Simulated assay, not measured.
Amino acid sequence: MVATIRDVAELSGTSRSTVSRVMNGKLRVNPEVREHVLAAVKELGYRPNKVARSLRTQASRVLALVVSDISNPFFGSVIRGVEDVAGSADYLVVLFNSDEDVERERRYLSIIVAERMAGVIISPTSERKTDLSLLVDNGIPIVTVDRLAKTSGTDTVRSDNVEGARLATAHLLDQGYRRIGYVGGPAAATTSRERLVGYKAALRQARVRFERRLLSAGDFKEESGHVVMTKLLEAQPDAVLVANHTMAIGALRSLREAGLRYPDDLGFVSFDDPPWASLTHPSLTVIAQRDLEIGRQAAHLLKQRILEPDRPAVRAILQPELRVRESSLRPVP
């Protein structure tokens, strides 16, 4: 049986990326480690695949960016941030849209491996179901953005979702609202679960009882926001926190159809700050994420990971900002 780079790594007690650097003549390898690797290479009779190496060289300036929903303007800003940094370092970026579909995401990852792209920035569709092992097994560096994946040891950049939801809910509580509904996203998404934790934490800190019927979940898309908001109104909330602005559009449509106005009939806060949020009348109170910076930091981390594949993983958490506008300010009686 022909020896593989994995066999060399196991015999020498190192990683595949270290073996690769030794075989490619990189200088930044401990001399003792280099000796272990070369001894394993000799013992196994390992021969690098020159064709594969050639393909890797050709693709070494191409990065993959896999987003979970390209129609969400949050990811538009993330993409721009990645492009800003990647372009300045002479990398090209290839964009993939998984559309919250695990199977589509899996096919894209296979393409990325087949094309031997230099690295991947990905917003995982599901923390449990997204499988990044194909990238790991092929030594392709990974940075996750916005959400976590079950694969350990990867760099990640995301918002402090717990704190963002806590800030939003605490603000509504400070305005005197007590029956605060929450329109969340799919349970498979880290962002959705963490924002629910923050919402509950604020209620608990204010000693306001959590009511399950004031909780609803969509899929981060506009139509689901409309459907779940229509259902939530049956519980008669006096305020609502929506977990992203795409669902907020659907939720606002539901309010209009019900003949309700914010903040006259109920308070309203949403995650994300699209340009239209400050232009509506009344204007929308939001939790603004640092989406552009998330993209920039992810690209910087990926560049570093490509150069230093064995360095410790970095988990960057950026603090969101509560931007108070008219929609959450309770009218004075």
Rank of each mutant, 00 (worst) to 15 (best):
residue 79 I to S: 05
residue 205 Q to E: 15
residue 257 E to G: 02
residue 186 P to A: 11
residue 54 S to C: 02
residue 44 L to H: 11
residue 288 A to Q: 08
residue 158 R to K: 13
residue 308 E to T: 01
residue 116 R to I: 02
residue 139 G to Y: 01
residue 21 R to Q: 15
residue 88 S to G: 03
residue 100 E to M: 10
residue 81 G to Q: 06
residue 20 S to R: 09
residue 238 D to L: 08
residue 145 V to C: 01
residue 187 A to Q: 05
residue 264 D to W: 12
residue 213 R to L: 04
residue 10 E to I: 10
residue 100 E to H: 10
residue 206 A to D: 03
residue 303 K to I: 13
residue 109 L to D: 14
residue 244 N to V: 00
residue 69 D to I: 04
residue 39 A to W: 02
residue 167 L to V: 08
residue 191 T to E: 12
residue 147 R to I: 05
residue 143 V to L: 08
residue 289 Q to S: 02
residue 128 R to S: 13
residue 279 L to Q: 13
residue 217 A to H: 11
residue 127 E to I: 00
residue 310 D to Y: 06
residue 191 T to P: 01
residue 148 L to G: 06
residue 77 S to P: 04
residue 152 S to H: 07
residue 268 F to G: 00
residue 126 S to D: 11
residue 116 R to E: 08
residue 303 K to W: 07
residue 235 A to D: 02
residue 138 N to P: 00
residue 193 R to C: 05
residue 195 R to I: 02
residue 110 S to I: 02
residue 318 L to D: 04
residue 32 E to W: 09
residue 24 N to S: 15
residue 187 A to I: 02
residue 29 V to W: 12
residue 111 I to A: 12
residue 105 E to V: 01
residue 295 G to A: 02
residue 159 S to C: 03
residue 109 L to G: 07
residue 285 T to L: 01
residue 320 P to I: 00
residue 191 T to H: 15
residue 208 V to S: 03
residue 271 F to C: 00
residue 125 T to R: 08
residue 249 I to D: 13
residue 64 A to N: 07
residue 236 Q to R: 15
residue 28 R to Y: 12
residue 268 F to T: 02
residue 58 Q to R: 15
residue 54 S to P: 00
residue 46 Y to G: 00
residue 137 D to P: 03
residue 59 A to Q: 03
residue 260 L to T: 12
residue 259 G to D: 01
residue 201 A to S: 12
residue 244 N to L: 07
residue 2 V to D: 06
residue 222 E to T: 04
residue 305 R to E: 12
residue 272 D to C: 03
